[in-house]
């Protein structure tokens, strides 16, 4: 299994996590910790703590730490500040986070109970921005602008460990001759004839690295994670010794990366927060056995569009000349619009 497929923190919205899930995973760092934050949408009137890591936002109630929410940055559609009605503060400026996770949209509203402090908005927005602008570290990329003057454009925390010439990409019948760049974050291949024909495979997205026999002979086969599309990429390096050597190198780098992933989300706070371990409240073990698969309905409170969980498929509407969500039986566009307006 790739590092990524085990990584849910940044690409999932989860509710009522266990203490184990609240802990930071390797490579995840706590960036900011804000006390006195109210989860205005789901737990209005409840004082809680907001933790901002490089992968997600965690909120938990101070009174009841099992009441908590984890929002991965990858799910966030947009972040805005708007006026909300808080039980603890009344009308106040709040942080609105619209997310989408497995085709369900959730909306989160967080309110800072300390008046006049913009830190909630600034740190969440800035860290999310840092996450968004560092996708190169984590995303499988095809045909992007990676190469400049036959050289790899390095990411801020990236170092090139090896450059291998004469690597054939076996994605087409005749194969394409290109070059490998092996770094501490990813493997990049590009065609020597066409800079814009390239692939960037972060170790995060690698599911397996193998040597397999193909119609071109022994080849290096890299399988990417399910989430990135499950690509199977074949590369041929001659002679076989060099191929084995390269595979060994890539494998060991992949291991190193898996042990301590570099997510690339860089954000410097002026004041260092305490480590998450120090802030995590040890959960008191209830003497009653809790049925773990009895799912909670906590998420209901966070639906962005009423009780709707999924959109219907798009169809072309002759009436508007545009694609619309397929109407429910018995409804017409005109009828809907006239009711609304």
């Amino acid at each position: 299994m790739s590092v990524l497929d085990a990584l849910w923190e940044d690409r999932d919205v989860r509710f009522d996590l266990s203490a184990q899930q609240m802990k930071t995973r390797p490579g995840e760092v706590l960036i900011d910790c804000l006390d006195s934050i109210e989860d205005t949408k789901g737990n209005n009137g409840d004082r809680g703590r907001l933790l901002v890591t490089n992968l997600r936002i965690l909120w938990h109630s101070l009174a009841l730490s099992r009441v908590n929410v984890s929002v991965g940055y990858n799910c966030i559609l947009n972040i805005t500040t708007r006026t909300a009605n808080s039980k603890l503060r009344g009308q106040t400026e709040a942080l609105y986070i619209l997310t989408k996770c497995n085709s369900t949209r959730f909306e989160f509203i967080f309110t800072n109970l300390v008046p006049g402090s913009p830190r909630l908005f600034t740190s969440v927005m800035a860290v999310h921005r840092a996450y968004e602008t560092s996708k190169m570290y984590r995303d499988f990329k095809l045909r992007s602008a990676l190469i400049q003057n036959k050289q790899l454009r390095l990411l801020p925390q990236e170092h090139v460990y090896d450059k291998i010439n004469g690597v054939w990409n076996l994605s087409s019948d005749q194969g394409n001759l290109g070059t490998f760049f092996i770094t501490n974050v990813r493997i990049v291949w590009h065609a020597n004839m066409n800079d814009s024909f390239n692939v960037s495979i972060p170790y995060l997205q690698i599911r397996s690295i193998k040597i397999r026999d193909s119609k071109f002979g022994l080849a290096l086969v890299i399988e990417s994670s399910q989430q990135s599309g499950g690509y199977v990429l074949g590369f041929k390096i001659d002679p076989v010794e060099k191929l084995q050597e390269s595979v060994k190198e890539i494998n060991s780098l992949h291991k190193v990366y898996s042990a301590s992933p570099i997510f690339g989300v860089d954000y410097e706070m002026e004041e260092k927060p305490q480590p998450l371990e120090a802030l995590t409240v040890e959960q008191i073990q209830d003497d009653v056995e809790i049925d773990s698969d009895g799912h909670t309905d906590a998420f209901v409170a966070y639906f962005a569009d009423g009780n709707k969980q999924q959109d219907r498929e798009p169809v072309f509407s002759e009436e508007l000349g545009l694609a619309i969500e397929k109407l429910k039986d018995g409804f017409t566009l005109q009828g809907l619009w006239e009711v609304m307006s």
Binding site: T296, V300, F303, G306, N307, I324
Partner: peptide
């Protein structure tokens, strides 16, 4: 730089989420 391809939603978001008192 948000590039989005969208189609028109036909479900009005009339209803505010019911505030569940599960706790």
């Amino acid at each position: 730089g948000h590039l989005q391809c969208s189609y028109l939603g036909t479900d009005p978001s009339l209803f505010q989420a019911p505030n569940v008192q599960s706790r």
